[in-house]
Design a protein around this nucleic acid. Sequence first.
DNA 1: TATTATCTACCTATCGGTAGGTAGAATCAA
DNA 2: TTGATTCTACCTACCGATAGGTAGATAATA
Lengths: 182, 182
Amino acid sequence: MDTRTRALNLSRHYLQTLGFNGFSFQTIADALGIKKASLHYHFASKEDLGLALLEEYERSYKDWSEKVESLPAPKKLEQMLLIFYKMALDEKICPSGVLCSDFNTLPKNMKKQLLKFHEFQRAWLKDTLRQGVREKVFRKDLNIDATADLLLASIQGGLQMARLRGESETFKAFTKNLLKTL
Amino acid sequence: MDTRTRALNLSRHYLQTLGFNGFSFQTIADALGIKKASLHYHFASKEDLGLALLEEYERSYKDWSEKVESLPAPKKLEQMLLIFYKMALDEKICPSGVLCSDFNTLPKNMKKQLLKFHEFQRAWLKDTLRQGVREKVFRKDLNIDATADLLLASIQGGLQMARLRGESETFKAFTKNLLKTL
DNA sequence: TATTATCTACCTATCGGTAGGTAGAATCAA
DNA sequence: TTGATTCTACCTACCGATAGGTAGATAATA
């Protein structure tokens, strides 16, 4: 694997455990066994690194959403939650959650890119909820907007809570409960 | 108002807008118009300042909960949400949410104190939900644990989302929707 | 030989924190 | 009541560590 990719993988790990301001070029360089200055060959600035991370998250979310495209709505949501269960088990929090908290300390372009990523996830969720209503597996009077936001917010907050308490089961339990109300 | 109190107020503001690692003794000292070293007279270390903040949050939450003690359960939850609406309007996020995200970068004592604060809020919510069931205003089969966690997680995540999107109405809308399901 | 990827060595700014000092208010003993 | 002492709340000046970042030399490779 090339250095750039390894650097991105490490950054993703540190982002989701320590936050964007919780790791430095030094941290990544040390883990790679190269010098900090050499990392600047691959990423001109930390903002650049952050943007690359966000683009990667968005691309991999899009790839995933294409893979589950033909599934029924409840299966889609289940599959999505599975990704977050794994995160909880790994004592990680979701990238949006990390960057949301640090929001006001982020460079402008990262704010924009983060919002774009969020809106993509939100649109996907709304589509999936509408699909479920069409398929008659979700309640006919489901409030699409409010439910999509509730799902997003509770996943984001839930992962943070689970890590705080050191119990990933918490997260699993209340999200399962939430799905039942759809 | 004495310097210590003013420093705490400023710190609370910066904590909820920039995160615990997003402001420094210098930030606060500048805002107060005193020197950074003088701030160390009031707070030996940043951990000390953080602990003082957390204790203040907990104390004020306890005071508040005593004030609403005699209200019916739905009114209690409404009053609680009102506090968070104001936060959203102020483009702030909740202290637990900030510190949860930065969790792994916090000093040990702050982690403990944060967990204690969280457990207090959680216990209060569970009590209130049980009260509502007793009062027959909430569903009899309400899953107390899962619902308390869902409320906590969605408030925490919802405030972060609202700030990201720059729209406090989002938060108001989906929490209102959530209350209806109880 | 040109390009890619790394290096050494350095920069400025800021971080949390400390040492030592000082003006003025409060306290205490003769 | 007065003089000595201690306390409060600040100051200047510094520390080592680390942050993000840059310039320019060097090694490997195609």
